[in-house]
Design a binder for these strands. Structure first.
Length: 215
DNA sequence: ATGTCGGTGTCTCACCGA
């Protein structure tokens, strides 16, 4: 926490032992927490959601379940989580506030979002029902910020640790920024900091970012 | 079918999830 403060950030986080965790860091002011549990399943113990208000924008940070192997209980958990998230997203839209929903969606939205889509057809990140769930979500009225800025380019955000995938640029695009309509007009830029993926001891994801104009 | 990591417990190796 001190290291984060020393770097000039305020922070909220929702973590747990081992795998799951989400956080929101801000520079200007302390983010105001709205919720840290996705509504709809009191049994769900995994820390995969965090939502806060910052400077007039609601930011939802998510880590959608991976879902492999599919079919199976993990895939069922993914689809259940996805349904709950989609419901919640529609309520956020109805609220009328500017919203950003960002994080690891574990969804490859279309064939051009994978280096070799045929390798992913049976994977929980690319199964038809997963792509269709993502489409349904976006169709509520969200804008996929990366695609808005780069409509035709090949953009990846993740290269797995196997098979030298980064050196071969054998990546996938699974980290997304969805913007509510109020924010679409304020979208100035977006990108992926690919160089970070080349660091020593790095993550298998690269940082994805967007820039919004002031109101 | 394969591969590479990091975290954890069985604890300096073996496993699992990603």
């Amino acid at each position: 926490m001190k290291a984060i403060e020393d770097a000039g950030y305020h922070a909220l986080w929702h973590g747990q032992k081992s795998w799951n965790g989400v956080a929101i860091l801000t520079r200007l002011e302390q983010p105001v927490e709205i919720r840290r549990i996705l509504p709809g399943d009191p049994e769900d113990e995994q820390s995969r959601y965090l939502e806060a208000s910052i400077n007039g924008i609601v930011v939802g940070c998510l880590y959608l379940p991976n879902g492999n192997p599919a079919p199976g209980p993990k895939f069922d958990y993914k689809m259940g989580w996805f349904e709950r998230f989609t419901k919640h997203a529609s309520q956020l839209l109805e609220s009328g506030t500017p919203v950003v929903l960002t994080g690891d969606y574990n969804v490859i939205p279309t064939e051009r979002d994978a280096y070799k889509p045929e390798n992913w057809v049976k994977d929980a990140l690319f199964l038809p029902e997963v792509r269709s769930a993502f489409q349904t979500l976006v169709a509520q009225g969200w804008t996929d910020a990366i695609r808005r800025i780069y409509p035709h380019e090949t953009i990846y955000t993740f290269w797995d640790f196997f098979r030298n995938s980064f050196d071969r640029d054998a990546g996938i695009r699974i980290d997304h920024f969805l913007l509510s309509q109020h924010l679409t007009g304020r979208l100035k830029a977006a990108g992926v900091d690919r160089d970070v993926r080349g660091w020593e001891k790095t993550s298998d994801h690269a940082p994805v970012w967007i820039e919004l104009a002031d109101k």
